[in-house]
């Protein structure tokens, strides 16, 4: 029981810290008044929302701190993938030769936040949209469906993302 109240305090402070970081980044000034105002307001917001963002289970606590250098690599990789895929979609719009289909596959990522990031990246890349995510089971709508085989589809759509994502949130 004691450890769980301890974890609740940690949850509150983690939420406050993330909100404060967002405040500092958006206001972009380091004057004392601004920092204090941001801290008070993030604390106030965190007072109401701390059960929402950080998980109740302490076991997944390491998943809240991403490895930042891999995160930066991942963002650059995502931008490259996005431009490549949008040129492909552009070509398909011009020629009108689309072959849409729905594929199901399972991901090998274990933490919730990594799975959310994977589904988000799949949707962000033009040409693939995540329709449904249930535990590790993803349903993806694919504009140029080269296969319906689930393992091969995972290899084509998700494997390059998974390889970096499993290093960010271990």
């Amino acid at each position: 029981m004691a450890s769980s109240t301890h974890w609740n305090v940690v949850r509150f402070f983690v939420t406050t810290l993330y909100l404060w970081m967002g405040w500092i980044l958006f206001t972009w000034s380091l004057s004392l008044g601004n920092l204090l105002l941001g801290l008070v307001q993030s604390g106030l917001v965190a007072l109401f929302t701390w059960p929402v963002f950080v998980e109740e289970n302490e076991a997944a606590r390491r998943s809240h701190v991403p490895r930042v250098h891999f995160l930066i690599v991942y963002l650059l990789f995502l931008i490259v993938q996005m431009y490549g895929a949008s040129f492909r979609v552009l070509w398909q719009i011009l020629r009108g030769r689309i072959n849409p289909g729905v594929v199901h596959f399972r991901t090998r990522l274990r933490t919730d936040i990594a799975r959310t990031a994977l589904a988000n990246s799949i949707t962000l890349t033009p040409g693939t949209i995540t329709l449904f995510l249930d535990d590790d089971h993803l349903i993806v709508h694919w504009l140029d469906s080269r296969t319906t085989h689930s393992r091969y589809a995972r290899k084509l759509i998700a494997e390059s993302f998974e390889r970096v994502l499993k290093r960010i949130w271990a």
């Binding site: 979609v89 552009l90 719009i93 009108g96 689309i98 849409p100 962000l124 033009p126």
Partner: peptide, 19 residues
């Protein structure tokens, strides 16, 4: 405008909105 249903149209609109 030219794609046939909801899902394929979403692909086109997400190209526009993202890239």
């Amino acid at each position: 405008l030219i794609f046939p249903d909801v899902y394929t149209r979403l692909h086109a609109s997400s190209t526009a909105s993202t890239s």
